[in-house]
Structure formats: structure tokens, C-alpha cells
Amino acid sequence: MFEVAESSSNNDEIWILYYGATFIILAGIAFASNVYGISEKFFRLVTTFMPAGKATPRTMRVVGAGWVVVGILMFLPEIIQGIRAL
């Protein structure tokens, strides 16, 4: 019924996605664990340009944890494919 379209490329450009996912995970860990006070510093930077509303620096830590999850989800298809190959 449905057919998967085949691409002419052999996914040589997928490394860009992995670099992006790695950066997102590392940035998320830095924000979530508040390395060098990065969450507070970034919060102060952002609030100079726009109103914070009810957000606090702790909100940035929660967002950082979300970035870690998003980065892992970017790697998930490759992880599943590796497990199936076993």
C-alpha cells in the first residue's frame, strides 16, 4: 500500500544532525546542572531584551533538561537501528 521512497544519497550528510544533537545535549546538561551559573547568566541576558513574565532562572534549568531529551530523541533512530543489527 505505502512504499518508502528511496533517496539517491547514502546519508553522508547525517553527521551534521549528530553534531547538532551532541551540541544540544551538552548545552542542555550545562543549563540543567547550572555549570558556572550559566542558567542565571542566560536568564539575565534574555530578560534584558524581553519581559520574563513568571519565568525564573530555574525555568532555564528545566528547559535545559528538555534539550537533553530532544538531543537523545535525535539519536534514537540510530540507536534502534544499532540494536536491531545485533
Rank of each mutant, 00 (worst) to 15 (best):
I24V: 15
P77F: 03
G71V: 04
D12H: 08
E13W: 14
K54S: 13
F42C: 01
A32D: 00
I25E: 06
R84Q: 14
F31T: 02
I16S: 08
S7V: 12
P57E: 11
A55R: 13
I14S: 11
T47N: 09
I14R: 13
T47V: 08
V46M: 14
S33R: 07
G82R: 06
A21K: 11
V62T: 12
I29V: 15
G66D: 01
E6W: 08
K41D: 03
M1Q: 08
I16H: 11
V46W: 12
V46T: 10
F42D: 02
A5T: 11
E78P: 02
L76C: 11
A27M: 13
F49I: 09
I38G: 06
E3R: 13
G66Y: 04
G66L: 10
A5M: 13
A5P: 06
A5H: 07
Y36T: 06
L26V: 15
S9K: 12
S8W: 08
A55V: 06
S39K: 00
L86W: 13
V70I: 15
I24F: 08
L73D: 00
S9L: 04
G37L: 00
Y18C: 01
G28Y: 03
S7K: 10
V63Y: 12
V4S: 07
I29G: 03
L73V: 01
S7W: 07
I72L: 15
A30P: 02
G64A: 04
Y36W: 10
K54H: 09
P57M: 07
R44M: 10
S33D: 00
A85L: 06
A55Q: 12
I14N: 07
T56L: 11
S33T: 15
T59R: 00
R58T: 11
L45M: 14
V63W: 03
M74A: 14
I38C: 07
I29H: 02
I79C: 02
E3C: 08
T22V: 04
G28H: 08
V68G: 01
P57L: 09
E3A: 13
G71T: 06
S9P: 01
Y19C: 05
P57Y: 13
M74R: 01
R84E: 15
L73Y: 00
R84H: 11
R44E: 15
V35C: 05
F2Y: 05
N10S: 12
S33M: 11
V46P: 01
R61E: 15
A52Q: 12
P51E: 09
N10V: 14
A30W: 01
G53P: 06
N11I: 10
V4M: 07
W67R: 03
S7R: 14
E78T: 13
A55E: 10
E78A: 15
S9F: 09
V46S: 10
T22I: 07
F42I: 05
S39W: 05
S8P: 07
F43C: 10
L26N: 05
S9D: 13
S9C: 05
E3N: 12
A55L: 14
L86T: 06
A30V: 05
W67S: 11
G37K: 01
W15K: 11
